[in-house]
Design a protein around this nucleic acid. Structure first.
Length: 284
DNA sequence: GGTAGACCTGCCGC
DNA sequence: TGCGGCAGGTCTA
């Protein structure tokens, strides 16, 4: 099934820029899991083309459009954030790269896994989790697994997570699932929170600080003003954006994040992600 | 409000 | 081949 988009959709950049961790590339197709369905997708002159199983394409169409934020006007966003040469270069290099709207629970666990790690290891960790807990989905030659549920994580021992290679993050994953269950926290209502309310809710969990919370807000809760500050973004801000005195006075992640949100405005998250991907790919 | 260690594990470069 | 530094952070003292 084809879903039309008002702007070119750059699947390679969107799916492999570090906002999600378990898509597989088999050109021209990409395979991934959305809402417990195996999705096969490729770029199409009108937008994107996809197949799904077990749910039919017709029933999943809206979900896929939402996942890729296809109704969001990229040209408007570009004109908002394109205020310097670095952003401009990145937009030209990765034209059509979109910020996704992923499942918040999966996004939350994935980014807890990301702390002091690297993309390869994060992918391995999440793959191990889905292989241990998930249900297998088949399409063409691909086998992918559904993501573990909150209940799945609550029910198993922390040592199993450690044996899967998650290290010190295991206790955070476990305690987050436990807290959500015990306090009957409704993840589905998170999308109704404003940025600050969402941030407060997320950093309440052990293992989620300012950076990871902003990733979850940006990549799953539709908060395009969110501005995750990691090692890369901190370096970019300090080297290219901050004045000498700002470099001195802005010490914490949160203060750098506030600077970024103020400087780049309501689509700061887009500016952040384009800069992040640009500098990461340049420095490989 | 700000800082130094500790924390798991496996890439990656020398 | 083997080894040490380091990675999309966060917590605690």
């Amino acid at each position: 099934m084809i879903i039309s988009s008002n702007h070119y959709v750059n699947l390679e950049a969107t799916l492999f820029s570090g906002q999600c961790f378990r898509w597989i590339s088999d050109p021209p197709w990409f395979y991934g899991v959305i809402s417990n369905n195996l999705i096969k997708i490729r770029e199409h002159p009108k937008g994107i083309e996809f197949f799904s199983t077990p749910t039919s394409e017709t029933l999943l169409k809206d979900k896929i459009a939402e996942y890729f934020n296809l109704d969001e006007n990229l040209d408007d966003i570009y004109s908002c954030i394109n205020s310097d040469s670095r952003i401009n270069t990145s937009i030209h290099l990765f034209q059509g790269m979109r910020i996704l709207t992923q499942d918040p629970w999966e996004c939350l666990i994935s980014f807890i896994c990301s702390s002091a790690s690297n993309i390869k290891k994060i992918r391995r960790n999440i793959d191990s989790l889905t292989q241990y807990f998930g249900n297998k989905l088949y399409l063409d030659q691909q086998i992918l697994n559904t993501f573990p549920t909150i209940q799945n994580i609550v029910e198993i021992d922390e040592d199993i997570l450690r044996n899967l290679g998650l290290g010190y993050r295991s206790k955070y994953i476990k305690s987050t699932a436990q807290t959500i269950l015990n306090q009957k926290i409704k993840i589905r209502t998170w999308e109704n929170l404003n940025y600050q309310e969402g941030l407060d809710q997320l950093v309440y969990f052990k293992g989620i600080g300012d950076k990871i919370a902003n990733c979850i807000l940006l990549f799953s809760l539709n908060k395009k003003e969110a501005f995750p500050v990691d090692r890369w973004i901190e370096q970019i801000l300090r080297n290219y954006y901050l004045t000498k005195s700002e470099n001195k006075s802005l010490k914490t992640t949160a203060s750098l994040r506030l600077w970024g949100m103020n400087h780049f405005g309501k689509y700061a998250g887009y500016a952040n992600h384009y800069l992040f991907h640009y500098f990461r790919t340049q420095n490989k």
